[in-house]
Simulated assay, not measured.
Amino acid sequence: MSIKPNTVVSLTYELHTTNEEGQQVFVEKADKENALVFLYGTGMMLPKFEEHLSGLNVGDEYSFELSAADGYGEIDPGAFADLPKDMFKDVELPAVGDVIPLQDNQGNHFRAGVTAVHEDVVAVDLNHPMAGKNLIFAGEILSVREATQEELSHGHAHGADGHSGH
């Protein structure tokens, strides 16, 4: 069976980006013992990631690069903010490089990277950590099966075999 909408895909991958010198930098991987399992075609994965997998079969190997625009987007220069230091009076003051949890006025949760700590403010980057980076994927398709009706109604896979539900 080939990968198409409403199939459950199990795959391995290695993800790399490139640094300023153009060298590949390892980010993360999913191996056979800890495979990525997802319901294809439901918007859970990056659209261009899925596009590159379309039509592949069990045992097929793949390798492709997504541009930043097709991944997590370009860096938005407007997505930087200065938070008042007194926001952190009840918790330890974050340091440069920390990733902190935040919540907006509508109750949406997100994370921000601390870029600087000044006298009165903590400067944060609200861009996705992978924004502005090309994503280089390589891996192998481990299994492809039709999604169950329960998976389709829930909008996500219940494991490679369909029985790892919740």
Rank of each mutant, 00 (worst) to 15 (best):
M1A: 14
M1L: 14
M1T: 14
M1K: 11
I3G: 09
K4F: 02
P5F: 03
V8N: 14
V8C: 12
V9K: 00
S10R: 13
L11D: 08
T12C: 07
T17Q: 02
T17A: 07
T18N: 03
N19H: 07
E20Y: 12
E20Q: 12
E21P: 04
E21K: 15
G22A: 06
V25K: 04
K32V: 15
L36G: 00
V37W: 07
V37Y: 07
V37G: 06
L39T: 10
Y40G: 01
Y40L: 08
T42W: 13
G43K: 10
G43A: 12
M44C: 08
M45E: 15
P47N: 09
K48M: 14
K48D: 06
F49G: 00
L56S: 03
L66M: 05
S67D: 02
S67C: 00
A68P: 03
A68C: 00
D70I: 05
Y72D: 00
Y72Q: 01
I75Q: 10
I75G: 07
I75T: 14
I75Y: 06
A81I: 01
A81L: 01
L83V: 07
P84Q: 01
D86Y: 13
M87W: 15
F88W: 05
E92G: 12
P94G: 05
A95Q: 13
A95N: 12
V96D: 00
D98P: 06
D98F: 05
V99A: 10
V99D: 01
I100E: 04
I100Q: 09
P101A: 13
L102E: 00
D104L: 01
D104V: 02
Q106C: 00
Q106D: 14
Q106T: 11
G107M: 04
F110L: 04
G113W: 00
T115H: 03
T115N: 03
V117S: 06
H118R: 12
D120V: 10
V121S: 14
V122Y: 06
A123T: 13
V124L: 02
D125C: 02
D125W: 04
D125V: 05
L126F: 10
N127W: 09
H128E: 10
H128K: 10
P129D: 02
G132Y: 01
A138E: 14
S143H: 06
V144L: 01
R145F: 04
E146G: 12
E146C: 01
Q149K: 14
Q149G: 10
E150Y: 07
E150G: 05
E151G: 08
E151C: 02
L152V: 03
S153H: 15
G155C: 06
H156I: 04
H158G: 02
G159Y: 11
D161F: 04
G162I: 10
H163G: 11
S164F: 08
